[in-house]
């Protein structure tokens, strides 16, 4: 565990909590892509099956359970409790265009052809594209509340910090997880455009982040 990994996990947790509280307190999920949240719940489900097979540390177990609980709770808020505020019109990204290639690739490119390993690989590939429906929805509606922008900032920072963590681990212990690193780079690249907008518009204090 190094500072990059820990701060990455903290950013991830902050992002998930920001989103959950935003929906819970505003009693609305307007501007939020339910599809992305379902994909994230799927990412955690397929990645954390090892909760039942291997114990790494209390921190590892607790964080996995917290991520799963918050992810499913958020999906529950969007599709059940506050479903009348869910803007399915704007949340029109075809997730099958993500799921099919990701599933196919996880069968082709993995570390071992075992169910747990393929599901883990699937979750890594899926996570790199899971935010696309949300980013697509923002470009479609042309704007995002600043709280949603903060959510995306922390979510983007989390994997960027993991990249630093992998650099550090490669440098100090020769650890190198090719699948996770390549996917992490792709994932972070998708946020670059958003980061630019965030630091040029949201921080200027304009309440909403309106896209060009």
């Amino acid at each position: 565990m190094n500072i990059f990994r820990l701060s990455g996990d903290v950013c991830h947790l902050i992002a998930i909590i920001i989103l959950f509280l935003k929906i819970w307190r505003s009693k609305s999920c307007a501007g939020i892509s339910g599809k992305s949240q379902v994909l994230f719940a799927l990412v955690f489900t397929t990645r954390y099956l090892d909760l039942f097979t291997s114990y790494i540390s209390a921190y590892n177990t607790v964080m996995k359970v917290v991520y799963l609980l918050l992810a499913y709770s958020t999906v529950g808020l969007i599709f059940f409790r506050f479903r009348n505020s869910y803007d399915s019109e704007s949340d029109s990204f075809r997730v099958e265009f993500l799921l099919v290639p990701v599933a196919g690739l996880s069968f082709l490119e993995n570390y071992a052809f075992t169910p747990l390993e393929i599901l883990w690989t699937f979750s890594i590939y899926l996570e790199s594209v899971a935010i696309l429906p949300q980013l697509f929805m923002i470009t479609k509606t042309g704007e995002a509340e600043s709280i949603t922008a903060h959510y995306l900032l922390f979510l983007g920072l989390y994997r960027a910090l993991y990249l630093a963590n992998w650099l550090w681990r490669f440098h100090t212990e020769g650890f190198y997880d090719q699948i996770a690193v390549v996917s992490g780079v792709v994932q972070t690249i998708f946020y670059c455009d958003f980061f630019y907008l965030y630091f040029t518009r949201v921080l200027r204090g304009s309440g909403k982040m309106s896209l060009p």
Partner: peptide, 10 residues
């Protein structure tokens, strides 16, 4: 195949 990483990360 590459060493199966310890999956000690989230």
């Amino acid at each position: 195949d590459l060493r199966i990483n310890p999956k000690d990360e989230l």
